[in-house]
């Protein structure tokens, strides 16, 4: 069984935009930067659950549309004075297709 799922073409996401992938465990936001890098993060801000896919992207960061928290797309860490993180998922582009790691479909187990 392959470990990655083809979720669409890179061109399906405009530069500096994001689109959603629906899973049983919530939505994943897939971002394409101005430089064609792709990132996948949970589409829920740890502050009040804001949909990060709807934020403004700048560099490899996104600003949550609800209360302007800023997250690093690489790490999912909140920037500046805010504390928190969103889960990130391995994702890559091959031959113009976006491949999301199958782990994104696995249920989350709380780590102690």
């Amino acid at each position: 069984m392959t470990t990655a799922i083809d979720i669409g073409a890179l061109e399906d996401i405009p530069r500096q935009a994001a689109r959603l992938v629906k899973t049983h465990f919530g939505c994943i936001a897939v971002f394409r930067t101005a430089e064609d890098k792709v990132f996948a993060l949970d589409d829920a801000c740890p502050h009040k659950g804001g949909p990060l896919s709807n934020g403004i992207q700048h560099g490899e960061q996104v600003t949550c549309p609800l209360h302007n928290w800023v997250f690093d797309l690489n790490t999912g860490q909140a920037q500046g004075a805010d504390e928190g993180a969103v889960r990130t998922y391995p994702v890559r582009v091959e031959a113009g297709r976006i491949l999301l790691d199958r782990a994104a479909l696995a249920p989350q187990v709380a780590a102690e």
Binding site: I5, R19, L20, V21, K22
Partner: peptide, 16 residues
Amino acid sequence: SHEYRPLADLTQVAAE
């Protein structure tokens, strides 16, 4: 239209 439609729906895809 990309703003309103999900890129993919994986709720029908099995995890493992």
